[in-house]
């Protein structure tokens, strides 16, 4: 449409502009500005950032968080891909609807409740330990909870769906006859997966990986509830600055660093895969 701007245009533009400016753009500028200030002073300072780089625990936590997040993303792909393929290409069409629905229930129930569920399952008196003790296989409960293992399990649990769904939506449009043709030409299962299915699903894999990575790196509940004393997550540092020590400027600097490094990794992922950010949302 090329007519002059009509009322309708401004009618939709204004609320959107208000949303994006007041709640997205200005707050992030504010975050950046605050990270260069310290309490009670007008002048600019790098103090918050030097604090971060001179305190080993801070930057080590960030390094650990980022590397774990990458690890969980890879793990999520390994777990999710066969499931996504099964649901789109293998299982009888009748079951696709119910199984997909079942897949979404934990997502809708919410992270906190499912994480709480894992806490009950993995605890010293949880069902796994109780079961093994009852069987007589062990005498003392295994230390399943409050360590990196339980934390990774929780992170994987809450994020794996976000890997499955995008992969499923790309695989849905993969024509079965492509696989049949490859098989007809003598390709084995592994070759078909590697040469046909994975390349075809790549946009979904990239979208899924980016979403999973962002969810994991920004997560708080799984590390906090399931992780142990040593499983410090970078978001916990931010929470501490804001909610315990009330050093908001330091917290802003941490937040900005997290934003910076996660955007950087997402940007690299997009560059390497040649995908657009717009595609991630679809």
């Amino acid at each position: 449409m090329e007519t002059k701007r009509n009322r309708a245009f401004y009618f939709v533009l204004l609320p959107v502009l208000a949303w994006l400016m007041i709640l997205i753009f200005i707050p992030h500028i504010e975050l950046l500005v605050n990270s260069f200030k310290v309490d009670g002073q007008e002048s600019w300072t790098l103090e918050n950032y030097t604090d971060f780089f001179t305190n080993r625990i801070y930057w080590m936590t960030l390094v650990k968080t980022v590397s774990y997040a990458i690890g969980v993303t890879i793990l999520a792909f390994i777990v999710a891909f066969p499931v996504a393929f099964y649901l789109t290409k293998v299982v009888s069409k009748r079951y696709v609807g119910p199984l997909t629905m079942l897949l979404l229930v934990p997502l809708w129930v919410g992270e906190l409740i499912t994480i709480y569920g894992w806490m009950i399952i993995l605890g010293d008196h949880g069902i796994i330990n109780q079961f093994l003790i009852d069987l007589g296989w062990i005498e003392k409960p295994l230390p399943l909870l409050y360590n990196d293992f339980s934390m990774i399990l929780g992170l994987l649990y809450m994020s794996v769906l976000f890997m499955i769904v995008p992969i499923m939506s790309t695989l849905e449009s993969l024509d079965d006859s492509l696989i049949e043709a490859a098989s007809d030409l003598g390709a084995g299962k592994w070759t078909i997966i590697r040469r046909i299915v994975i390349p075809y699903a790549m946009p979904g894999i990239v979208s899924g990986s980016i979403i999973v990575f962002m969810l994991v790196i920004g997560d708080y509940l799984a590390p906090n509830i399931l992780g142990g004393k040593s499983s410090l997550w970078f978001t916990e540092q931010i929470y501490n600055q804001f909610l315990s020590t009330f050093n908001w400027n330091e917290g802003a600097a941490f937040g900005f660093l997290l934003l910076l490094i996660s955007s950087l990794i997402v940007w690299i992922a997009l560059k390497v895969s040649g995908q657009k950010l717009e595609r991630v949302g679809s």
């Binding site: 504010e30 962002m214 920004g218 978001t235 804001f242 908001w248 802003a252 937040g255 996660s262 955007s263």
Partner: peptide, 14 residues
């Protein structure tokens, strides 16, 4: 979509 919820929270409270 790619901003952790924490960051949205702290930047809005700031």
């Amino acid at each position: 979509l790619v901003i952790p919820g924490v960051i949205l929270g702290i930047s809005i409270i700031l």
